[in-house]
């Protein structure tokens, strides 16, 4: 495996192996060890053409714990925002000797363009592209779900997950749907019909417009962020109405089954898709998702970079 562009690049065995590796790495991180020498001398570039402090910091912490050299190339102050082409940026990164590029980009498919081009040879890791995918987020979500709900099983067989909110524009949802299916979980999507893509009938998911009907039967409720600008594009009338039908509030929290958990990829709109008391409740694993993110991203970097032969890297 050279790149991580989409969850569809992974076999079930590869996905499980990333989760297993992350489990061992989490154990290391919990102890006295904060740094491993594994990627010493390797250069990882965080190319963030779109703001995302949390994902960037998570990848940066993961790379540093593996002793890689990290270069941050963020949108503000970089040439990406000044109209330099993706191609020229790639050529620059190649000249700098990047071994891996972690890319966050507003355009769907930008990471694949980098990976497929002959502009550079580095491994490409998709850290969120447009409304396409966010595979590392899905892996950390699966890691979190496995820890809480899988009862020791390596995969997520039989676990029921509801993904609620703006599926149409969510790269988190796309990656999660693919990965949850790969790992044997069943997925229900809950959203207003305007926020579900045309063509969704072919996806291996159940679709519901009724949140209350779905809640009691699932082990995981995964809330998606709703962007304020969707209101002006007629996707729903206003925030109040959205929140009434699709927000996770304390009344709906009571409908959840006893051992179920609440997830959110962040950043949250408290009071819109999730009520503050739900986000801070005992069922919420939202903060844990963040800390799991570092272990999972270490595992991704390890799997993609540690085993690469010197020869291949220098070609």
């Amino acid at each position: 495996m050279r790149h991580l562009l989409s969850i569809s690049d992974l076999s079930k065995a590869e996905a499980v192996s990333i989760l297993d590796t992350a489990t061992e790495l989490a154990r290391v991180s919990d102890g006295a060890v904060k740094k491993l020498p594994t990627l010493r001398g390797r250069t990882i570039v965080n190319l963030f053409a779109e703001d995302s402090t949390r994902t960037r910091i998570s990848f940066e912490a993961a790379a540093k714990r593996l002793s890689a050299d990290v270069i941050n190339f963020s949108a503000k102050g970089s040439s990406v925002s000044k109209g330099e082409s993706l191609k020229d940026t790639a050529l620059t990164l190649q000249a700098m000797g990047a071994d891996a590029v972690v890319i966050r980009h507003g355009a769907s498919g930008a990471p694949q363009r980098l990976a497929d081009s002959e502009w550079m040879l580095a491994s490409v890791i998709n850290a969120g592209d447009g409304t396409h995918e966010h595979p590392s987020q899905a892996l950390l979500d699966a890691f979190t779900i496995r820890k809480h709900c899988a009862k020791g099983a390596p995969d997520l067989a039989g676990i029921r997950v509801a993904i609620v909110g703006d599926v149409l524009h969510s790269r988190v949802a796309r990656s999660n749907i693919l990965l949850l299916n790969l790992l044997g979980a069943s997925v229900s999507l809950v959203a207003p019909p305007t926020l579900l893509p045309v063509g969704i009938e072919k996806w291996p998911v159940d679709i519901s417009y009724d949140f209350d009907a779905v809640i009691p039967s699932v082990d995981v409720v995964m809330m998606l962020r709703v962007q304020q600008e969707r209101m002006s594009n007629l996707f729903f009338p206003n925030a109040r109405e959205y929140s009434r039908y699709f927000g996770l509030n304390s009344d709906r929290l009571k409908l959840m089954s006893p051992h179920s958990i609440v997830m959110h990829p962040g950043p949250m709109n408290r009071g819109l898709e999730i009520a503050a008391e739900v986000a801070d409740s005992a069922r919420s694993v939202i903060v844990e998702q963040v800390s799991n993110g570092v272990s999972v991203r270490m595992a991704i970097l390890y799997v993609l970079l540690a085993g690469q032969s010197l020869e291949a890297g220098e070609k």
């Binding site: 498919g109 409304t131 045309v198």
Partner: peptide, 9 residues
């Protein structure tokens, strides 16, 4: 359609 839904375009 089906493909645009997957690609996020």
């Amino acid at each position: 359609g089906e493909v645009s839904a997957v690609l996020g375009l």
